[in-house]
Simulated scan of single mutants.
Amino acid sequence: MTSVYVLGAFVPRNPAVARQVLFALTVAATGVTLVFSVLAPRTLFPANQSAGVTGTCVAVCLFLLALACDLRFRRRDAVWAWAAFPFLAVAAITGLDLLSADASVAAQVFFLLPVLYAGAQLHYVGVACVSAAVTAGVTIVNVALGSGWTAIANTCFVAATLAVTAGALAVGGRRTDLLIAQLEKQATVDPLTGLFTRRALDRAAELNQSTDELGLLVLDLDNFKKVNDVHGHLAGDAVLQQLSALLTDLSRHTDAIARMGGDEIAMLLPGCSLDAAYAIADEVLRAIRSHRFDVSMSTMTRSHAPTVLRLTASVGVAHLPTHSDTLAGLYAVADAGLYEAKAGGRDQVGGLSRKDPHAA
């Protein structure tokens, strides 16, 4: 379990973006290295210009480029590949710096690339591990090629700069993730009632469209406008919150309840037969009819109007595949049923005839 957790720390927060970032950084680094190692080997390897050294450099670059291409284009999500790549990159940079006998800033600047990738794409544990590996690589290069306090100073300056960069990117990435999660929640959860939004209900309906049966109830409170007019909008909000809690208590764990707008609420009932959908609608009406909506803490009126309200609702029922085989058709049938219930005197269930579900 520990090994799985540790390896999981190297799986990027957003694999699709990480593939592009990793590929771009690898192409840039290997491209520059290959050009200089082939066209100007004396520049890259002033202390060792042998064909073997140049061949090793080319082989390492091509291997990293091939692995980056594999992740980018074949879209592999193997944990070992994500975990191995940044450490292979650090090892390659360290080895090439040692081969070139170059501890200059120009040589060590490539250590910034795995830091940029880790800080921008990995979780905190992954960032810390890659940063530690980069620090080790920087230390090896400076100690092996430098001397005395100069090597120590170079190691400290480069390692500290890279660590700060990694930390800043990691913190920024974490804040971005939290912001995205908050925005996604706002897009799927109604802030007043805690119910789903229409967008989330549509998504749930699409996921359940392939089921054998799917019920849909659309309801709203009768004369809800009077609650706002007499008691104020805060009282209306309190009523909606209590109604949402009531419907949640009545629902199954597989059901999805959404606030469509105003006081209109929809209940999606997966695996529910037509008769069961009507039975649930009747149960919802009875529960609302018998519930006492307490608006005493939010009423704005100073009159003697009661602060415990008795309300009723109207419900429209639709069923897939009985009434329609599309989501749009299902919503249309439920809305028509709701209109029928309102026109028929309210506090009732409306819908296409149970005996003739395809009747207009």
Rank of each mutant, 00 (worst) to 15 (best):
Y5L: 14
R13F: 03
P15Q: 10
R19T: 07
A24C: 12
G31C: 10
S37R: 13
V38P: 01
P41S: 08
T43Y: 14
S50Y: 07
A51C: 01
A51P: 01
V53M: 11
A59F: 11
F63H: 02
A68P: 04
R72N: 09
W82A: 02
L96H: 06
V115F: 00
Y117I: 00
Y117L: 00
A120I: 03
V125I: 15
T135V: 15
T135I: 05
V141S: 01
N142Q: 14
N142L: 03
A144N: 04
N154Q: 15
N154D: 14
L162N: 02
V171N: 00
G173R: 01
G173A: 08
R174K: 08
L178M: 14
L178V: 09
A181N: 07
P191C: 08
G194H: 07
D202F: 10
A205S: 13
N208H: 14
L221Y: 04
N228P: 02
D237T: 06
V239T: 05
L240K: 04
Q241C: 12
L247H: 06
L247G: 02
S251G: 10
I257V: 15
D275C: 04
A287L: 09
S290C: 06
R292S: 13
V295E: 06
T301S: 15
H304K: 13
T307P: 00
T307G: 02
T307Q: 10
L311V: 09
T312Q: 08
A318N: 05
H319N: 14
T322W: 03
S324P: 03
A328G: 15
A341G: 07
G345K: 10
D356Q: 13
D356M: 07
D356G: 01
A359Q: 11
